[in-house]
Design a protein around this nucleic acid. Structure first.
Length: 423
RNA sequence: GGAGAAAUGGCAGAGUGGUCGAAUGCGGCAGUCUUGAAAACUGUUGAGGGUCACACCUCCGGGGGUUCGAAUCCCUCUUUCUCCGCCA
C-alpha cells in the first residue's frame, strides 16, 4: 500500500497518476487524509492522557514506599477518570487506524511516469520484438493436438484425477518440462540469483504482505482445515522471506530464484482461449525476485528484462515485449513489462513472463526496510518476474518447432532433455 | 496426536509487580594510542508514532485480562526444545 506521508505530500500528483489506471482517487484520498488527521489528533490526546496517568502511578509508588498510604489511596481515585478516558481514546484510535488501513488497501500503486494511458491490453505499448516466426502454413497444429499426436501431455487423464486444468505430462513431455526447469534455474543462478525452494502453502500474513489478500482471495486455493493458501506464484513465499526485516544497505542487491508449481483457481475464465496449456489451475514456473535499494530498482528492472530476453533468444522463440498501460497494470505494480511468445498455430501471442517493479508498495505492507547511511529506516523496493512460466513456453516450443519429422528440441535444451526430437 | 519446558535488543544472557526500554558479555560504529594494523582504553549502539527540535507515547513471541502500576501475575494462540506415539 501507499505511504500516508507520501500521499499527504504529493496529493495532486498521486491523483493524476492514478487517473492513468482509470482510477478516480479523489474521494478516497480525501478520506485517507481525513482519517489520518483525526488519527493523529486522537493519538496526541491519548499520549498526554497516558503521560498523566504514568506520572500518577509513579507518585503512588513513591507514596507507598514512604508509607503515606492515605495519600496514595487518594491519588488512586484520580486515576480512574484517566483510565476511562484512555480506554475511550484507544478504541477511537483503533477504529481510525483500521479505517485508514482499509482505505489504503483500496488504492492501487502509483504507475511509473512511463506507463501509457489506456484501458485494456489493446493499449499496451510494444517496445521490442525479436525472433522469426516459422512459416508452417496450414499444416501447423496447435499444441494440444501435437500433445495428443506424440502422447506427451494428457489433458483428459488429469480431469479424471483432479479436474479440468490439471494436465498430466508424460514421457518426453514430462522430461522436456523438467529440462526447461533445470535450464531456467541454471540461467538464473549463473546470473547471480540464489536458488530457493520455498513452501507451497502460505499463511494469511504472507498473502497480505504481497497483496494477494484481501482482494484476490478467490484466485487462491484455500486449505480451510489449516487456514493456509496454495501459492499462486513463488513471488509470494519468496518475497515474504523478507517480511519484517531491516536490512543493512550492503545486503543489496538481493536476487532470488525459485521453481515451484503455481495454483490458481481462475474462477470464471473458461472458453476457447483457455484450451490446452493456455490457462491452467496448476502450472510450473521459475520466478526471479529482487529486493533493491530504491535508487537502483529501475536499473534492476532493466537487468531483469534483459535477462529474460537472453533466455528467449537462446530458445530461439519469436517473442515481443509490451509495456503495460495503466488499465492493464497489476494492482500492486508501478511498471510492468510483459513478454509474449508467438503461438504459430493459434496465431496469437501468449504471455510467458511479467516483470514488474512494485517500488515500495509491497515493502510497506511487508515492513521490509533497510537502514540508510544516516541510520534511518526506509522502505526497500521489491521486484519480480517470471523466467519463465512453463506451459506457454512449452506450447510455444511445440508449435514453433514442429516439423514433418516431429518436434525438434531447441538446441540449448538438448543436453537437459537427452533427446533432440519428439516423434 | 500425548506429556513436559521455554520464548527478552544483531547474537548470547540477567531481570524481587513500582525511576526497566531493560544489567552484563560478544558483535557493530566513533574516538584515544600507533607509521599503519592488532591489542588495550573511552564513548556510542533496538523499533514505531509524535515534534521545527525537544517533550511525550507505544513495543520484552501474538492477542486478551488483573492492577493506581506488568518483561514480571492470569487466560489464550503461535513457535521452539525434550520425551512418547505415528510416519515419507
Amino acid at each position: 500500500m501507499l505511504q500516508v506521508a507520501f500521499i499527504r505530500e504529493n496529493k495532486d500528483a498521486v491523483i493524476a497518476a492514478l487517473a492513468k489506471r482509470n482510477f478516480d482517487a479523489t474521494q478516497v484520498i480525501e478520506d485517507v487524509l481525513a482519517f489520518d488527521e483525526s488519527r493523529r489528533s486522537i493519538q496526541a490526546e491519548l499520549d498526554s492522557t497516558l503521560s498523566q496517568s504514568n506520572k500518577l502511578s509513579k507518585e503512588i509508588g513513591q507514596l507507598f514506599k514512604s508509607g503515606e498510604r492515605e495519600k496514595a489511596n487518594q491519588l488512586k481515585e484520580e486515576t480512574g477518570q484517566l483510565k476511562e478516558r484512555s480506554k475511550q481514546l484507544t478504541e477511537q484510535l483503533n477504529e481510525k487506524a483500521e479505517g485508514l488501513t482499509q482505505l489504503l488497501y483500496q488504492i492501487p500503486n502509483v504507475p511509473h511516469e512511463s506507463v501509457p494511458q489506456g484501458n485494456t491490453d489493446e493499449d499496451n505499448e510494444e517496445v521490442f520484438r525479436e525472433g522469426d516466426v516459422p512459416q508452417l502454413g496450414d499444416k501447423a497444429l496447435p499444441h494440444w493436438e501435437l500433445a495428443k499426436k506424440y502422447d506427451i501431455i494428457d489433458f483428459e487423464l488429469g480431469t479424471k484425477v483432479t479436474g479440468a486444468g490439471f494436465p498430466v505430462y508424460k514421457g518426453k513431455g514430462a522430461r522436456l518440462q523438467r529440462a526447461l526447469i533445470s535450464y531456467f534455474l541454471d540461467k538464473n543462478t549463473e546470473a547471480g540469483y540464489t536458488e530457493y525452494q520455498p513452501p507451497l502453502m502460505i499463511n494469511e500474513a504472507s498473502g497480505y504482505g504481497t497483496g494477494q489478500l484481501p482482494d484476490k482471495e478467490g484466485q487462491m486455493y484455500y486449505v480451510g482445515a489449516d487456514d493456509l493458501y496454495l501459492i499462486p506464484t513463488s513471488e509470494v513465499p519468496i518475497t515474504n522471506l523478507f517480511r519484517n526485516e531491516i536490512l543493512s544497505e550492503d545486503r543489496f542487491p538481493i536476487c532470488c530464484t525459485a521453481y515451484t508449481p503455481c495454483f490458481r483457481r481462475e474462477a470464471g475464465s473458461y472458453g476457447a482461449h483457455v484450451r490446452g496449456l493456455n490457462r491452467l489451475h496448476q502450472f510450473d514456473k521459475v520466478e526471479i525476485v529482487r529486493v533493491e535499494h530504491p535508487d537502483e530498482s529501475y536499473k534492476a528492472l532493466d537487468a531483469m528484462v534483459d535477462h529474460v530476453k537472453n533466455i528467449l533468444r537462446e530458445l530461439k522463440l519469436p517473442y515481443r515485449i509490451l509495456r503495460l498501460c495503466g488499465g492493464d497494470l497489476g494492482f500492486t505494480s508501478a511498471l510492468t513489462f510483459d513478454f509474449e511468445v508467438f503461438s504459430t498455430a493459434q496465431d496469437r501471442w501468449l504471455e510467458i513472463s511479467s516483470v514488474s517493479n512494485f517500488e515500495a508498495y509491497q515493502a510497506n505492507r511487508l515492513k521490509l526496510r533497510y537502514k540508510d547511511k544516516n541510520g534511518k529506516s526506509k522502505l526497500a523496493h521489491t521486484l519480480n518476474g517470471s523466467s519463465l512460466a512453463l506451459p506457454r513456453v512449452l506450447a510455444g516450443i511445440l508449435e514453433n518447432y514442429q516439423t514433418d519429422e516431429g518436434i525438434k528440441v531447441p538446441e540449448v535444451l538438448i543436453p537437459y532433455a537427452g533427446f533432440d526430437t519428439i516423434s
